[in-house]
């Protein structure tokens, strides 16, 4: 195990274990995929882990006929709006933290550190109360606003540590030229912070896209249903039609899979920078 750096001596224990774990990871994913291609009537007859004798896309058709595209669009709207607003307000706040000369910036940073420790589960009842009072219950805004709030602390922390790396002289020279704070933000900070914005943006998109508790508590009707909730309701609605339920799972994961393929580095570094949540 200790020999990961000594290439000439293979790490047999680690390797055996890694391949075993690979099987544990891949088996369910393989199962989702082949079952989604299995005709409904064969589901009870064929071996569940065998390749379908008559692969078909009809399960996908049944899912798409059941408003799946609306749920998909809802998820896109909620995720895009949450991430866009989170990034915008967080980069502004991060700029204040980095530039402030008084205690305000430091206190803001401390609040963010504390905010990371607040679990959504603990705040959900008052959030529900608030959303009902604001008349937003069962709207997409009811999902977007709290999602932004709970994304801000981590986003702020990551952006702040990134902005601290910008040399002081760059700010100074822009100020000498008479640039306003807003101009510095838009012309200097945002372009320089682009890699950090991408990292944290992809990470927060994954969180919001897969979020379950806010939709469960704050929405009700099919008009406002997002994907994770739709999977759950498909499970109830389709019941024994397992291929359709798993086809919905495949469709829901596709955008994240695409993001992973295109922006793997951002996602991985976002996750390690974010440390869970």
């Amino acid at each position: 195990m200790a020999l990961q750096r000594n290439e000439h001596r293979p790490n047999v224990v680690g390797a055996a274990f890694a391949w075993l774990w690979l099987a544990v990871i891949i088996l369910p994913i393989y199962y989702i995929f082949i079952t989604s291609l299995r005709p409904r009537e064969d589901y009870y007859a064929e071996n569940p882990l065998s390749w379908p004798a008559n692969p078909t896309l009809t399960a996908y058709q049944r899912v798409l006929e059941n408003d799946f595209l609306r749920f998909f669009a809802n998820s896109v709207v909620v995720t895009a709006a949450s991430v866009a607003v989170t990034l915008a307000v967080s980069v502004m706040a991060a700029y204040v933290v980095v530039r402030s000369r008084d205690g305000f910036g430091r206190n803001l940073f401390r609040v963010a550190l504390l905010g990371i420790a607040i679990p959504i589960q603990a705040a959900i009842i008052p959030v529900y109360y608030l959303i009902v009072q604001l008349g937003l219950y069962d709207t997409l805004a009811a999902l977007i606003l709290p999602s932004i709030a709970f994304s801000i602390p981590l986003t702020l922390l990551i952006l702040t540590s990134f902005l601290r790396e910008i040399p002081e002289s760059l700010f100074e020279s822009m100020r000498m030229d008479g640039a306003t704070e807003w101009r510095i933000l838009l012309r200097l900070v945002v372009p320089l912070a682009r890699p950090a914005l991408a990292t944290v943006g992809v990470y927060q998109a994954l969180q919001v896209w897969n979020g379950f508790l806010f939709p469960l508590v704050l929405t009700q009707s099919a008009e406002t249903r997002v994907l994770p909730l739709s999977l759950w309701s498909f499970q109830g609605q389709f019941g024994v039609d397992v291929p359709a339920v798993l086809a919905a799972v495949v469709l829901s994961i596709l955008p994240m899979l695409a993001a992973y393929i295109l922006a793997r580095r951002q996602l991985v570094s976002g996750l390690t920078a974010g440390f869970g949540k």
Partner: peptide, 19 residues
């Protein structure tokens, strides 16, 4: 410039914690 983040975070995360 920090106001929007503070307001959003305050209203939907800090207030609920006291709530």
């Amino acid at each position: 410039m920090a106001a929007p983040a503070l307001i959003l975070f305050g209203v939907f995360a800090i207030v609920p914690l006291f709530g």
